[in-house]
Write a protein that binds this DNA or RNA. Structure first.
Lengths: 160, 160
DNA sequence: GGCAACTGTAACTATATTGGTTACAGACGA
DNA sequence: TCGTCTGTAACCAATATAGTTACAGTTGCC
C-alpha cells in the first residue's frame, strides 16, 4: 500500500494556501510548515499547477496561491494530481499464461481494484479544502481574527 | 500509493487453492502460476497461515491448502493479512508544531484516511474467494470437468 | 532407519520509489 | 541591474519489495 506521503503533504500545502487567503506563499514558508525541503515543495507545486489547483509566480514577491476557491477544490482533485497509480497494483510480472487461474486472475483483479478505486474516489470527492480548513478550526482555540494573525506570523515565517 | 503487489499475489494464491479443491499445493507449483520464486510464495504463505487463512504441512507430500471454505474467506481477510498499513500515509516527518495548520493537519487527515480505509474495507469485505473463482470461470471457455482437468495439469505442474 | 520431498527461515542482493540536497538558469519587481 | 523568487536537473540517502541461495527441520514412504 501507500509508502508515500505525497497526498498528505499536498493537502497540507493547499490547506496552508486556503488559510493564507489569497496571499502568495513562498516555497520556503510552506516547506517550514510541512517540515521538509523547499525543493520538494516546489516539485509538488509544479504538479499541482499542472492540474490547475495552484498558480505560481516567479521573481521577487512571487509565490503560489490557490487557483480556485477552497470550496471548489476536492481531495479527489488533489489525489488525482499527485498520486499517479491506483490504490493497489497488480502482479509485478504477469502470471503464467499456461495456468487457467494465472491467465485470468488479472481481469478479475482489475474489476476488484476498480471497485476499490471508485469507493476511494467517492469519499475524496465529497471533501473540499474548505472542509479541511473548517475541521481544522475547532482545533485552534483562538478567535478568527487572532487565528489569521497567527497564520501570518507562523505560516509566513514559520519557525523564525 | 501502492507500490506493492502483495495483495494481488495473495488473492491469486488463495484462488489457486480454492481451484485445487482441498488438494495441497506445493510452493513451487504456486510460484509457477504466479511467475515468481517459491520462497516469495512461502513467505506469503506464512503470513496467510498466521491469519488462519491457509494451513501448510511440511515434509514429503506436504503443501498448503485453504483453512476454510472459499466462501468464508473475504478479500478483506486477505488484505488485512498481507497489507500492514492503510491506503495512505501521513507525513514522513511530523509537520511544524509552531504553525497552526501544521500542528493540527494530522488530526484532520487521520479522519479522512479513516474514512478512506473504511470505504476500501467495505468493498473488500463483500467479495469472497468463491466470488473470485466464479468471476474467473466465464473467462475459461471449457466445461467444469475439463476445467478441473486443466487445473490439475497446469496448476499442479504449471509450465512443465 | 534412512532417503527424498517438502516447509520455514535467514542472509544477502537487486530494483524501484520517494524524499532530501545542492546547484543553477530564468523570471520579475523595485 | 540587483536581489528574490520559481523551475528543474543531477545526485545521494532511505526504505520497501522482490528475487536468490542456502540450509535446518519435518514428514511420508520404502
Amino acid at each position: 500500500m501507500s509508502t508515500s506521503s505525497r497526498f498528505a503533504v499536498a493537502v497540507h500545502v493547499l490547506t496552508l494556501m486556503a488559510w493564507a487567503d489569497d496571499e502568495p506563499l513562498k516555497s520556503e514558508q510552506v516547506a517550514e510548515s510541512v517540515n521538509t525541503n523547499a525543493v520538494v515543495i516546489r516539485r509538488m507545486l509544479c504538479e499541482l499547477a499542472e492540474s490547475k489547483l495552484v498558480v505560481s509566480q516567479s521573481g521577487a514577491m512571487g509565490g503560489s496561491k490557490l487557483a480556485r476557491e477552497p470550496e471548489q477544490i476536492t481531495l479527489l482533485d488533489i489525489y488525482q494530481a499527485v498520486e499517479s497509480r491506483g490504490v493497489f497494483s497488480l502482479h509485478r510480472h504477469p502470471p503464467n499464461r499456461h495456468c487457467p487461474v494465472g491467465v485470468n486472475i488479472g481481469t478479475v483483479l482489475n474489476h476488484v481494484l476498480d471497485e476499490v478505486d471508485t469507493a476511494v474516489e467517492r469519499v475524496l470527492a465529497n471533501i473540499t479544502i474548505k472542509d479541511v480548513v473548517s475541521r481544522l478550526q475547532p482545533c485552534v482555540s483562538t478567535s478568527v481574527r487572532k487565528r489569521k494573525q497567527m497564520a501570518k506570523q507562523h505560516v509566513m515565517s514559520a519557525g523564525n
